[in-house]
């Protein structure tokens, strides 16, 4: 799956992230390096405090590394930008004063990339892909949690970003909805021409979603290892979940809250 003769889409080198608290400066990650290539689904996994969400926010440009470099297509990331669309965990990430289709159109119009009619057209196409076209004119508070997350994913995809950043997008959903959302995301990714960087604390989700999994240890976050999933299913996947659980915590747990 690793296409080594290709230049990486995203490149992190010795990234240290730290934040200030009342007790002083706390280091969140310690010298993290990895590459993400086009069409990869790269999953970050680790216990709370391993800095996985911070790493995602650093790639998004919301926080700046205290040391090291983050490069997208060879250029240093200086701040947030629409070439890296973010999908959050919270259901309130949709703007309640806009209808479903207006939410999906919003980045297209706000960045002045498209005219309104063209943006509407594209947004509707993306909404059909997540099976929500018939709810296009609803306000978001009338949608269920799963539907909201699908709208957020549609909004992320419609911008055709270089990389889609997903911060535990399914963590607040019930188990059944989560399963079907994971399947839907995988189906969508097959059609798309970008990379996905996915943060989760569920090992089984990591194995299901990822093509490659980066394991992090906590306090501060360090790279513990990288696992290729090779789209494992069935007993292979179960073994992989077990193996990752072993190396992260020394136990076989499927989750690591």
């Amino acid at each position: 799956m690793i296409i080594s003769d290709q230049a990486p889409l995203l490149q992190l080198r010795n990234v240290n992230l730290s934040y200030d608290t009342h007790q002083g400066r706390v280091q969140a990650t310690d010298k993290i390096s990895f590459d993400i290539f086009l069409k990869e689904r790269f999953v970050l996994i680790g216990p709370s405090g391993c800095g996985k969400s911070s790493l995602l926010k650093a790639v998004a440009g919301f926080i700046h590394p205290s040391e090291g470099s983050i490069k997208l297509k060879g250029e240093e990331i200086k701040g947030p930008g629409p070439d890296r669309m973010m999908v959050f965990q919270e259901f309130d990430q949709l703007l309640p004063w806009k209808t479903v289709v207006e939410n999906v159109m919003f980045p297209l119009v706000a960045t002045r990339r498209f005219e309104k009619s063209e943006a509407h057209h594209r947004a509707m196409a993306c909404l059909s892909k997540v099976q929500l076209a018939k709810y296009a004119d609803n306000y978001c508070h009338t949608l269920s949690g799963g539907m909201k997350q699908r709208v957020a994913i549609a909004r992320g995809m419609t911008m055709e970003p270089d990389i889609l950043l997903m911060d535990e997008p399914f963590a607040a959903l019930d188990a059944m909805t989560r399963e079907s959302m994971q399947d839907e995301l995988l189906a969508l990714c097959k059609e798309m021409n970008f990379a996905v960087m996915f943060v989760t604390h569920s090992i089984s989700e990591a194995v299901k979603i990822g093509t490659r999994i980066l394991m992090l240890s906590a306090n501060p976050g360090r790279v513990k290892g990288v696992v290729l999933t090779n789209s494992a299913t069935g007993s292979e996947a179960t073994d992989l979940v077990h193996e990752i659980g072993q190396s992260l915590f020394g136990n076989a747990g499927g989750r690591c809250d």
Binding site: A60, G61, G79, P80, R84, Q93, L95, P107, T111
Partner: peptide
């Protein structure tokens, strides 16, 4: 989260106020 969305789309201050803060 809404603030981060506004920043994600690279809105200028005036547009950020007008499109995110004011309705929010």
């Amino acid at each position: 989260t809404w603030r981060m969305i506004g920043q994600n789309y690279g809105l200028s201050l005036i547009r950020f106020v007008y499109l995110i803060l004011l309705p929010g």
